[in-house]
Amino acid sequence: MSLASYIGCNVEIPINDEDDDLVTIGSFFSDEEHRINVQKYQFKTPYVYEVSSDWGIEISEYMNRKTCAESKKELIELCKLMDSYLKNGDFFELYSCWVGEETQRREGELTLQINSFDIDQIKMPEKTLVRFEK
């Protein structure tokens, strides 16, 4: 199984599956059915994409330090990317889960400002819906 991270937003985002980017938007671990399910059960937005590098974005004390540090870098880069697409007052949602678990009940919710959060204070375990507001 693979940990997939999905974003939901109100604007279309171009697919970016370049291998040299820290964060890419495209289809990696999931298929269309998984994205439909995460949209139906987790998001409130019309557009859903999988976001990836080598693994999903998860930040928790149960992860090894290297993977957690990589997730933090990916999250910061994702917020920079999404900030360029969103207008003031808009938002995007992030949800990470194991592929096939998109319909399961979420375990937590969190709302953050896209440009003003302390990455070292965030806990984002799998199955946590995070709303980033601009």
Rank of each mutant, 00 (worst) to 15 (best):
R35E: 02
N37K: 01
N37S: 06
V38F: 05
Y41P: 00
T45N: 06
V48N: 02
Y49V: 00
Y49N: 04
E50A: 10
V51P: 01
S52Q: 12
W55I: 14
E61A: 07
Y62D: 12
K66G: 08
T67Q: 09
T67C: 13
C68V: 07
A69E: 04
A69K: 10
A69P: 07
E70W: 13
K73W: 07
E74K: 11
E77P: 03
C79R: 15
K80N: 15
M82T: 07
D83M: 12
S84F: 14
Y85G: 01
L86Q: 03
L86W: 12
K87G: 06
K87M: 05
N88E: 12
N88G: 02
G89Y: 10
D90F: 06
F91I: 01
Y95H: 03
W98M: 14
W98Q: 14
E101Q: 12
E101P: 03
T103K: 14
R106V: 06
R106T: 08
E107L: 15
E107Q: 13
E107P: 04
E109C: 10
L110Q: 13
L110T: 10
Q113K: 12
Q113E: 11
Q113M: 13
S116G: 06
D118W: 10
Q121W: 00
I122L: 04
K123P: 02
K123Q: 11
